[in-house]
Design a binder for these strands. Structure first.
Lengths: 257, 257
DNA sequence: CGATCTTTTGACTCTGATCAACCGGGGTGG
DNA sequence: CCACCCCGGTTGATCAGAGTCAAAAGATCG
């Protein structure tokens, strides 16, 4: 059963389980010392529970602080004047929010919780890496990898929106989500939670919800995926990979995941 | 007459003029000390001339070093297996190429010169900021702003591709290029060089060259822009701004440009 | 058990793609 | 010097992927 789905339904969290996501993710990117892990655990002690649909960052307003997303899903998005919305990126459990915009006076996009979310203030993390990088070389390395992965996700997104069909886009996004969740130890092989409405998926992929609906139907009809209870299972990952021209940004095998 | 167009035609460069672009850009973002400016000038002394259509960075291959684009235009792009191309970002005079991917083992996208290009190895710049940030606080700040601007450009691009019509996309891109060039001291009010074929513009905006052709015709017919000799002039910048829902990422007035 | 949100379906429209041809200029080679 | 060619821009005709509009059927939630 889906941890996220269960959480989405009941809004109950098991903190000791949840807080593994950031540590699993960062230590998969660079093996962390005990000291570094303890630093992260300490950081996450000051957590904050935030309910779904809450705006964490508002476009145009100074960013309060970078955040570590301990658990739950969020979206980065921009709105056009007439109400059109484009989702720029997903923020998945274990990932960082806003680390790249330290001196930016105004956030270039908004961030909103999609599910109930647990975040921690990541400012101490940034400060540690800045002030005493020699004390946390592995952590610093992991954070650089994080930045690279975020970048890669953005590029993927641009290519999807610019040059792929609805069918390809959807397949590509699902493969990316699978890999990103796997890195944080979420998901389960070819199955993963997907707590998104079709409307949200549409705003992510630059389509309408009607068209997303039909595209998902096609993917199911052709036995590429199954969906139930906010869970997606990729039945033909290799075929999807070929269709979407998807390449994993990281060698998940090499990271022992 | 267009500096870039002239350069594109003759491949002759006046280095003393050209090399101002990076300095103008960086010192507009944060007022640099004489020492910092001298460091940049020294850095740019080791320049390299590269002809149009040369690949500076190849997707999947380790990035040799970050580069400072002293002059000329380049594109970041990705190719799909069947040959579709999506341009991810432009690299304009004065901008940095690849500063964000320091530890990335493989470049997430390729970079190719569109015009003859002059680049300098920016590794010393990165090292300076890392090793002795206290010696170059303004420069470090300027580089952080750079990262923020690059991020903003990418977000703009995602929104254009995901949620705007061909007409809106084109207007939006032109406004962005105007502002980015202005920051480096290129362009001239509402006029700026645009050394791109319609094919390139199409691969940037996720359209076909045929459709770009018709969209440009519409923009001219409605007296929004004029084009000649690789120069674009925005006749109705305010109207374009409204149409494209464009917001300048930086207060160009405040930067005294 | 209404009320609201999400998913699904059908009919129709339209933006932008495709295909094909032609034009015009600049470079090249005979 | 001129013919040729190639590339980039332009045009027209047709096609298709995705959007729009509207309504109904399921879910969810107070």
């Amino acid at each position: 059963m889906s941890r996220v789905a269960r959480r989405g339904a009941t809004a109950t969290i098991r903190p000791d389980e949840a807080e593994f996501a950031p540590i699993r993710r960062l230590s998969a990117l660079a093996p962390l010392s005990t000291r570094e892990v303890n630093f992260l655990i300490e950081l996450m002690r000051r957590r904050q529970q935030i309910s779904a649909r809450t705006e964490l960052i508002t476009e145009g307003v100074a960013i309060p602080a970078p955040m570590l997303l301990i658990d739950g899903w969020a979206i980065r998005y921009r709105l056009l004047a007439d109400g059109r919305r484009q989702i720029i990126d997903l923020c998945l459990p274990g990932e960082l929010i806003g680390p790249c915009w330290p001196v930016t006076p105004a956030a270039p996009s908004s961030v909103m919780a999609l599910t109930p979310v647990i975040v921690a203030d990541a400012a101490p993390l940034r400060n540690l890496v800045r002030v005493a990088p020699e004390d946390c070389s592995n952590l610093a390395l992991a954070l650089e990898y994080c930045a690279g992965l975020t970048e890669t996700s953005l590029l993927n997104h641009v290519v999807r929106l610019g040059r792929q069909t609805a069918y390809e886009r959807t397949a590509h996004l699902f493969l990316e989500i699978r890999d990103r969740l796997a890195l944080s130890g979420c998901g389960n092989g070819e199955s993963f939670p997907l707590p998104l409405t079709q409307e949200t998926l549409a705003d992510m992929l630059g389509l309408t919800s009607v068209h997303i609906n039909r595209t998902l139907q096609q993917l199911r009809r052709e036995r590429m995926i199954t969906m139930s209870e906010n869970m997606v299972t990729l039945l033909e990952p290799a075929a999807l990979q070929a269709i979407a021209d998807y390449h994993s940004p990281i060698d998940l095998q090499a990271l022992r995941i």
